[in-house]
Amino acid sequence: MHIPDAVLSPAVCAGTGVLSTAAVGYSVFRLRSSLADRTVPMTGMAAALIFAGQMVNFPLPFLPVSGHLLGGVLAAALVGPWAGCLAVTLVLVVQCFVFADGGVTTLGANILHMAVIGAWGGSAVMNAVRNLLGGDARATIIGSVVASWLSVMAAAALFCLEFALSCWGPLRGSSEAVNFDLARIFTLMVSYHSLIGIGEGLITGMVVSFVLRQEPSLIRPAEPSTHLVGAGRLAFAGCIAAMAVAAFLAPFASEYDDGLEAIGTTQFAERMEQERQGPALLSDYEIPLPIAGWKESPVWAKVSVSLAGILGTAATLGIALALGRLIPRPQIVPQPAE
Protein backbone atom coordinates (compact mmCIF):
# COMPACT_ATOMS: atom_id res chain seq x y z
CA MET A 1 0.00 0.00 0.00
CA HIS A 2 2.88 2.38 0.54
CA ILE A 3 3.73 3.99 -2.77
CA PRO A 4 7.50 4.43 -3.06
CA ASP A 5 9.20 7.49 -4.49
CA ALA A 6 9.39 7.96 -8.25
CA VAL A 7 6.24 6.02 -9.02
CA LEU A 8 4.20 9.19 -9.36
CA SER A 9 5.28 12.21 -11.34
CA PRO A 10 6.19 15.48 -9.58
CA ALA A 11 2.99 17.19 -10.68
CA VAL A 12 0.81 14.42 -9.29
CA CYS A 13 2.86 14.37 -6.08
CA ALA A 14 2.33 18.10 -5.70
CA GLY A 15 -1.38 17.81 -6.34
CA THR A 16 -1.95 14.99 -3.87
CA GLY A 17 0.33 16.77 -1.41
CA VAL A 18 -1.80 19.89 -1.51
CA LEU A 19 -5.01 17.91 -1.17
CA SER A 20 -3.82 15.88 1.79
CA THR A 21 -2.27 18.89 3.52
CA ALA A 22 -5.64 20.61 3.25
CA ALA A 23 -7.39 17.51 4.60
CA VAL A 24 -5.00 17.16 7.53
CA GLY A 25 -5.28 20.86 8.25
CA TYR A 26 -9.04 20.65 8.28
CA SER A 27 -8.89 17.65 10.61
CA VAL A 28 -6.68 19.59 13.03
CA PHE A 29 -9.08 22.52 12.85
CA ARG A 30 -12.11 20.33 13.59
CA LEU A 31 -10.32 18.62 16.47
CA ARG A 32 -9.22 21.86 18.07
CA SER A 33 -12.76 23.08 18.17
CA SER A 34 -14.07 19.89 19.69
CA LEU A 35 -12.31 18.12 22.52
CA ALA A 36 -9.46 20.25 23.72
CA ASP A 37 -7.08 18.57 26.13
CA ARG A 38 -7.89 14.92 25.43
CA THR A 39 -6.97 15.20 21.77
CA VAL A 40 -3.25 14.66 22.04
CA PRO A 41 -3.13 11.51 24.18
CA MET A 42 -6.14 9.90 22.50
CA THR A 43 -5.01 10.50 18.94
CA GLY A 44 -1.41 9.66 19.70
CA MET A 45 -2.45 6.42 21.33
CA ALA A 46 -4.79 5.55 18.48
CA ALA A 47 -1.90 6.06 16.07
CA ALA A 48 0.39 3.88 18.15
CA LEU A 49 -2.35 1.29 18.29
CA ILE A 50 -2.79 1.17 14.52
CA PHE A 51 0.97 0.96 14.13
CA ALA A 52 1.28 -1.89 16.61
CA GLY A 53 -1.82 -3.59 15.24
CA GLN A 54 -0.13 -3.78 11.86
CA MET A 55 2.45 -6.07 13.44
CA VAL A 56 -0.06 -8.85 13.90
CA ASN A 57 0.22 -11.23 10.96
CA PHE A 58 -2.64 -12.92 9.23
CA PRO A 59 -1.87 -15.95 7.08
CA LEU A 60 -2.99 -16.06 3.48
CA PRO A 61 -4.21 -19.17 1.75
CA PHE A 62 -1.79 -20.81 -0.71
CA LEU A 63 0.79 -18.09 -0.33
CA PRO A 64 3.96 -17.90 1.75
CA VAL A 65 3.32 -14.27 2.66
CA SER A 66 1.06 -12.80 5.28
CA GLY A 67 -1.15 -9.77 5.43
CA HIS A 68 -2.00 -7.25 8.07
CA LEU A 69 -4.45 -4.59 9.13
CA LEU A 70 -4.49 -1.20 7.40
CA GLY A 71 -6.55 0.47 10.07
CA GLY A 72 -8.17 3.61 8.65
CA VAL A 73 -11.72 2.52 9.35
CA LEU A 74 -10.79 1.07 12.73
CA ALA A 75 -9.21 4.38 13.76
CA ALA A 76 -12.32 6.24 12.65
CA ALA A 77 -14.59 3.88 14.56
CA LEU A 78 -12.49 4.45 17.65
CA VAL A 79 -11.77 8.18 17.73
CA GLY A 80 -13.89 9.61 14.93
CA PRO A 81 -13.04 10.76 11.42
CA TRP A 82 -10.93 13.81 12.31
CA ALA A 83 -8.70 12.22 14.92
CA GLY A 84 -8.71 8.99 12.93
CA CYS A 85 -7.39 10.78 9.88
CA LEU A 86 -4.64 12.37 11.95
CA ALA A 87 -3.76 9.05 13.58
CA VAL A 88 -3.25 7.26 10.27
CA THR A 89 -1.36 10.29 8.93
CA LEU A 90 1.01 10.10 11.87
CA VAL A 91 1.55 6.41 11.29
CA LEU A 92 2.43 7.10 7.67
CA VAL A 93 4.75 9.99 8.52
CA VAL A 94 6.63 7.97 11.11
CA GLN A 95 6.84 4.97 8.77
CA CYS A 96 8.29 7.25 6.13
CA PHE A 97 10.78 9.20 8.21
CA VAL A 98 11.80 6.59 10.74
CA PHE A 99 11.56 3.33 8.82
CA ALA A 100 11.97 4.50 5.21
CA ASP A 101 8.69 2.85 4.36
CA GLY A 102 6.93 4.68 1.56
CA GLY A 103 8.34 7.62 -0.34
CA VAL A 104 8.66 11.23 0.79
CA THR A 105 7.37 12.73 -2.43
CA THR A 106 4.49 10.26 -2.46
CA LEU A 107 3.65 10.84 1.20
CA GLY A 108 0.78 13.07 0.14
CA ALA A 109 -0.71 10.36 -2.04
CA ASN A 110 -0.29 7.77 0.69
CA ILE A 111 -2.02 10.04 3.21
CA LEU A 112 -4.81 10.70 0.75
CA HIS A 113 -5.38 6.99 0.13
CA MET A 114 -5.08 5.60 3.61
CA ALA A 115 -5.83 8.43 6.02
CA VAL A 116 -8.35 10.57 4.19
CA ILE A 117 -10.20 7.88 2.27
CA GLY A 118 -9.73 5.39 5.10
CA ALA A 119 -10.85 7.55 8.00
CA TRP A 120 -13.08 10.24 6.47
CA GLY A 121 -14.57 8.05 3.78
CA GLY A 122 -14.70 5.00 6.01
CA SER A 123 -16.42 6.94 8.73
CA ALA A 124 -18.94 8.43 6.29
CA VAL A 125 -19.81 5.04 4.82
CA MET A 126 -19.96 3.43 8.23
CA ASN A 127 -22.28 6.11 9.55
CA ALA A 128 -24.53 5.90 6.53
CA VAL A 129 -24.82 2.13 6.87
CA ARG A 130 -25.39 2.31 10.62
CA ASN A 131 -28.13 4.88 10.32
CA LEU A 132 -29.70 2.88 7.55
CA LEU A 133 -29.75 -0.34 9.55
CA GLY A 134 -30.89 1.08 12.86
CA GLY A 135 -27.69 1.77 14.75
CA ASP A 136 -27.43 -1.36 16.91
CA ALA A 137 -24.36 -3.54 17.30
CA ARG A 138 -25.05 -5.58 14.21
CA ALA A 139 -25.44 -2.45 12.13
CA THR A 140 -22.12 -1.23 13.50
CA ILE A 141 -20.31 -4.39 12.45
CA ILE A 142 -21.90 -4.46 9.02
CA GLY A 143 -21.04 -0.80 8.61
CA SER A 144 -17.40 -1.35 9.52
CA VAL A 145 -17.00 -4.28 7.14
CA VAL A 146 -18.64 -2.47 4.24
CA ALA A 147 -16.67 0.70 4.95
CA SER A 148 -13.37 -1.17 5.03
CA TRP A 149 -14.02 -2.89 1.75
CA LEU A 150 -15.21 0.25 0.00
CA SER A 151 -12.35 2.36 1.27
CA VAL A 152 -9.76 -0.10 -0.03
CA MET A 153 -11.46 -0.22 -3.42
CA ALA A 154 -11.76 3.56 -3.61
CA ALA A 155 -8.09 3.96 -2.74
CA ALA A 156 -7.18 1.50 -5.49
CA ALA A 157 -9.30 3.41 -8.00
CA LEU A 158 -7.72 6.71 -7.02
CA PHE A 159 -4.24 5.25 -7.29
CA CYS A 160 -4.94 4.07 -10.83
CA LEU A 161 -6.01 7.55 -11.75
CA GLU A 162 -2.86 9.07 -10.27
CA PHE A 163 -0.68 6.46 -11.93
CA ALA A 164 -2.28 7.18 -15.28
CA LEU A 165 -1.85 10.92 -14.82
CA SER A 166 1.80 10.37 -13.92
CA CYS A 167 2.47 8.63 -17.21
CA TRP A 168 0.45 11.08 -19.23
CA GLY A 169 2.71 13.01 -21.63
CA PRO A 170 1.85 16.67 -20.92
CA LEU A 171 2.24 16.23 -17.16
CA ARG A 172 5.61 14.54 -17.57
CA GLY A 173 6.88 17.46 -19.52
CA SER A 174 7.57 15.41 -22.61
CA SER A 175 5.85 16.14 -25.84
CA GLU A 176 5.59 12.49 -26.67
CA ALA A 177 2.19 11.22 -25.70
CA VAL A 178 2.18 7.90 -23.95
CA ASN A 179 -0.74 5.83 -24.94
CA PHE A 180 -1.75 4.94 -21.43
CA ASP A 181 -4.51 2.42 -21.10
CA LEU A 182 -6.33 3.22 -17.91
CA ALA A 183 -8.63 0.25 -18.14
CA ARG A 184 -5.82 -2.27 -18.02
CA ILE A 185 -4.17 -0.86 -14.96
CA PHE A 186 -7.62 -0.78 -13.37
CA THR A 187 -8.06 -4.46 -14.09
CA LEU A 188 -4.77 -5.33 -12.46
CA MET A 189 -5.26 -3.18 -9.39
CA VAL A 190 -8.90 -3.96 -8.84
CA SER A 191 -8.37 -7.69 -8.94
CA TYR A 192 -5.79 -7.46 -6.18
CA HIS A 193 -7.54 -4.93 -4.09
CA SER A 194 -10.91 -6.60 -4.00
CA LEU A 195 -9.10 -9.40 -2.17
CA ILE A 196 -7.12 -7.01 0.03
CA GLY A 197 -10.44 -5.37 0.80
CA ILE A 198 -11.93 -8.67 1.92
CA GLY A 199 -9.01 -9.19 4.29
CA GLU A 200 -9.29 -5.68 5.66
CA GLY A 201 -13.05 -6.00 6.08
CA LEU A 202 -12.67 -9.31 7.84
CA ILE A 203 -10.06 -8.05 10.29
CA THR A 204 -11.85 -4.78 11.01
CA GLY A 205 -15.18 -6.56 11.44
CA MET A 206 -13.74 -9.14 13.81
CA VAL A 207 -11.94 -6.52 15.89
CA VAL A 208 -15.02 -4.31 16.09
CA SER A 209 -17.23 -7.22 17.10
CA PHE A 210 -14.69 -8.29 19.73
CA VAL A 211 -14.55 -4.80 21.20
CA LEU A 212 -18.34 -4.49 21.09
CA ARG A 213 -18.57 -7.64 23.17
CA GLN A 214 -15.89 -6.63 25.66
CA GLU A 215 -16.17 -2.91 26.00
CA PRO A 216 -18.84 -1.39 23.76
CA SER A 217 -18.30 2.14 25.03
CA LEU A 218 -15.02 2.34 23.12
CA ILE A 219 -16.68 2.25 19.72
CA ARG A 220 -18.12 5.63 18.89
CA PRO A 221 -21.90 5.68 18.68
CA ALA A 222 -23.42 6.45 15.30
CA GLU A 223 -23.85 10.15 14.95
CA PRO A 224 -27.43 11.16 14.44
CA SER A 225 -27.62 12.81 11.07
CA THR A 226 -28.89 16.34 11.05
CA HIS A 227 -29.99 17.53 7.65
CA LEU A 228 -26.91 19.39 6.54
CA VAL A 229 -24.27 17.17 8.10
CA GLY A 230 -26.14 14.09 7.00
CA ALA A 231 -26.37 15.30 3.44
CA GLY A 232 -22.68 16.14 3.26
CA ARG A 233 -21.69 12.85 4.76
CA LEU A 234 -24.00 10.94 2.49
CA ALA A 235 -22.50 12.73 -0.49
CA PHE A 236 -19.01 11.78 0.66
CA ALA A 237 -20.02 8.19 1.24
CA GLY A 238 -21.61 8.21 -2.19
CA CYS A 239 -18.36 9.45 -3.74
CA ILE A 240 -16.40 6.66 -2.09
CA ALA A 241 -18.90 4.08 -3.25
CA ALA A 242 -18.97 5.56 -6.74
CA MET A 243 -15.21 5.36 -7.00
CA ALA A 244 -15.28 1.75 -5.95
CA VAL A 245 -17.98 1.01 -8.51
CA ALA A 246 -16.07 2.91 -11.18
CA ALA A 247 -13.13 0.67 -10.52
CA PHE A 248 -15.24 -2.26 -11.61
CA LEU A 249 -16.95 -0.61 -14.51
CA ALA A 250 -13.85 0.93 -16.06
CA PRO A 251 -12.61 -2.24 -17.75
CA PHE A 252 -15.89 -2.53 -19.60
CA ALA A 253 -15.68 0.99 -20.93
CA SER A 254 -12.45 0.33 -22.76
CA GLU A 255 -11.87 -0.81 -26.25
CA TYR A 256 -9.84 -3.91 -26.67
CA ASP A 257 -9.63 -3.69 -30.44
CA ASP A 258 -5.98 -2.80 -30.54
CA GLY A 259 -4.89 -6.38 -30.55
CA LEU A 260 -2.37 -6.02 -27.77
CA GLU A 261 -2.30 -8.77 -25.27
CA ALA A 262 -4.47 -8.32 -22.26
CA ILE A 263 -2.72 -8.16 -18.99
CA GLY A 264 -2.28 -11.16 -16.84
CA THR A 265 -4.97 -10.76 -14.31
CA THR A 266 -4.29 -12.69 -11.24
CA GLN A 267 -7.60 -13.02 -9.68
CA PHE A 268 -6.48 -15.74 -7.36
CA ALA A 269 -3.45 -13.93 -6.11
CA GLU A 270 -4.48 -13.16 -2.61
CA ARG A 271 -3.48 -10.27 -0.51
CA MET A 272 0.11 -9.62 -0.97
CA GLU A 273 1.79 -7.96 1.87
CA GLN A 274 5.01 -9.59 2.78
CA GLU A 275 6.21 -9.15 6.26
CA ARG A 276 9.75 -8.33 6.97
CA GLN A 277 11.78 -11.18 8.36
CA GLY A 278 13.99 -11.11 11.37
CA PRO A 279 14.04 -9.25 14.62
CA ALA A 280 13.57 -5.74 13.36
CA LEU A 281 10.18 -4.10 13.55
CA LEU A 282 7.74 -3.34 10.80
CA SER A 283 8.38 -2.43 7.22
CA ASP A 284 5.94 -4.40 5.25
CA TYR A 285 5.84 -4.72 1.61
CA GLU A 286 3.15 -5.48 -0.76
CA ILE A 287 3.89 -7.89 -3.51
CA PRO A 288 1.28 -8.38 -6.15
CA LEU A 289 2.38 -11.66 -7.66
CA PRO A 290 1.49 -11.73 -11.29
CA ILE A 291 0.89 -15.44 -11.51
CA ALA A 292 1.65 -16.58 -14.99
CA GLY A 293 -0.92 -18.24 -17.13
CA TRP A 294 -3.76 -15.75 -17.01
CA LYS A 295 -2.61 -13.88 -20.06
CA GLU A 296 -5.60 -14.55 -22.13
CA SER A 297 -8.27 -12.97 -24.17
CA PRO A 298 -9.72 -9.55 -23.35
CA VAL A 299 -12.91 -11.30 -22.44
CA TRP A 300 -11.17 -12.98 -19.56
CA ALA A 301 -10.02 -9.61 -18.24
CA LYS A 302 -13.60 -8.41 -18.06
CA VAL A 303 -14.93 -11.62 -16.65
CA SER A 304 -12.24 -11.77 -13.99
CA VAL A 305 -12.93 -8.25 -12.81
CA SER A 306 -16.63 -8.92 -12.55
CA LEU A 307 -15.91 -12.17 -10.76
CA ALA A 308 -13.62 -10.37 -8.37
CA GLY A 309 -16.27 -7.74 -7.80
CA ILE A 310 -19.05 -10.20 -7.23
CA LEU A 311 -16.86 -12.33 -5.04
CA GLY A 312 -15.80 -9.32 -3.03
CA THR A 313 -19.28 -8.00 -2.56
CA ALA A 314 -20.66 -11.38 -1.61
CA ALA A 315 -17.82 -12.03 0.79
CA THR A 316 -18.24 -8.63 2.40
CA LEU A 317 -21.93 -9.15 2.96
CA GLY A 318 -21.32 -12.67 4.17
CA ILE A 319 -18.70 -11.58 6.67
CA ALA A 320 -20.88 -8.75 7.86
CA LEU A 321 -23.92 -10.94 8.40
CA ALA A 322 -21.94 -13.75 10.02
CA LEU A 323 -20.21 -11.43 12.45
CA GLY A 324 -23.46 -9.72 13.23
CA ARG A 325 -24.98 -13.06 14.13
CA LEU A 326 -22.17 -13.96 16.52
CA ILE A 327 -23.16 -11.12 18.79
CA PRO A 328 -25.69 -11.72 21.51
CA ARG A 329 -27.86 -8.77 20.76
CA PRO A 330 -29.60 -7.61 23.90
CA GLN A 331 -26.50 -6.92 25.97
CA ILE A 332 -24.51 -4.74 23.74
CA VAL A 333 -26.37 -1.77 22.47
CA PRO A 334 -23.54 0.76 22.24
CA GLN A 335 -23.83 3.44 24.85
CA PRO A 336 -22.58 6.97 24.41
CA ALA A 337 -19.10 7.29 25.88
CA GLU A 338 -19.82 9.79 28.59
Binding site: F58, I203, M206, F210
Partner: peptide, 25 residues
Protein backbone atom coordinates in the same frame (compact mmCIF):
# COMPACT_ATOMS: atom_id res chain seq x y z
CA UNK B 1 -7.87 -20.06 14.14
CA UNK B 2 -4.99 -17.73 13.40
CA UNK B 3 -7.30 -15.13 11.89
CA UNK B 4 -9.57 -15.27 14.90
CA UNK B 5 -6.70 -15.04 17.34
CA UNK B 6 -5.08 -12.22 15.37
CA UNK B 7 -8.26 -10.16 15.48
CA UNK B 8 -8.68 -10.85 19.18
CA UNK B 9 -5.11 -9.77 19.90
CA UNK B 10 -5.74 -6.51 18.07
CA UNK B 11 -9.06 -6.06 19.86
CA UNK B 12 -7.50 -6.67 23.24
CA UNK B 13 -4.64 -4.34 22.39
CA UNK B 14 -7.21 -1.72 21.46
CA UNK B 15 -9.01 -1.99 24.78
CA UNK B 16 -5.79 -1.93 26.77
CA UNK B 17 -4.28 0.97 24.86
CA UNK B 18 -7.42 3.08 25.19
CA UNK B 19 -7.45 2.45 28.93
CA UNK B 20 -3.82 3.36 29.01
CA UNK B 21 -4.56 6.58 27.14
CA UNK B 22 -7.17 7.45 29.77
CA UNK B 23 -4.66 6.82 32.55
CA UNK B 24 -1.97 8.82 30.80
CA UNK B 25 -4.41 11.64 30.20
Amino acid sequence: FRWKVGAQVIGMLLIRSMRRAERVH
